[in-house]
Design a binder for these strands. Structure first.
Lengths: 107, 107
DNA sequence: ACCCAATACTACGACAGATGAAGTAAAATC
DNA sequence: GATTTTACTTCATCTGTCGTAGTATTGGGT
């Protein structure tokens, strides 16, 4: 059964997708989402950072710092096993969502 | 540019789709959405009726009553020209949304 | 050396849409 | 005549998004 609050939660999925390829941090993820979507989707900063908080609370990602690094201090994130599992569920849910919504869309 | 609050708003689109085929009322629309989605999506009553209020406020639908009808009093709705236009926009937006989200989905 | 843009966040408050819980009431069915 | 189905309504709460604003460091251009 599909919940109607789906896409909102897909910001989380996009972030997790970015982290599948390796650890990263807010600004970089934001740039990459923008680039991957070919500028069609730009995640707002506040949305992004509040997603981080939520995902870490849920155990989907974990944060850490690298010391001895140049530039402004970054908070890095990596995806956890729970995060991967959650991502996989979301992928399945998305297929279903598409099927359902498409029944209500004309061409 | 895609807004991230998309699917929430697709409840409205589903309702409008149902009304494209002719006037209807809450309970019937609800049943039909359930049926069309093959039980995969059931719109909550409160979601449905609050969507009606919103859609009427936006001028997408208009409500009326039929008198001399048997059964419990129903509020009927029909789609307006604005409603049709809004529906068409949503269809286009949905194509884009799918494209974008699919870039972040594995298989 | 100075300025401005880019980087990298954080804090706070507001809002909209979805939902849960509960209630009302008429009609149909058994 | 009791229960189920139909057909809503009201109200309060929650969650995720987003606007506004602020902080602070770094890099690039002139």
């Amino acid at each position: 059964m599909i919940s109607s609050d789906v896409i909102r939660g897909y910001n989380d999925t996009m972030i997790l997708y970015m982290l599948l390829e390796g650890e990263s941090y807010g600004y970089e993820i934001s740039k990459n989402i923008r680039r991957l979507s070919q500028e069609k989707y730009v995640m707002k900063e506040t949305t992004l950072y509040s997603a981080f908080t939520r995902l870490e609370k849920n155990g989907c990602i974990s944060s850490f710092h690298k010391d001895g690094e140049a530039g402004k201090r970054r908070t890095y994130y990596r995806i956890t096993e729970e995060g991967r599992a959650y991502y996989r569920e979301k992928c399945i849910e998305w297929q279903l969502t598409q099927e359902v919504v498409n029944t209500f869309i004309k061409e």
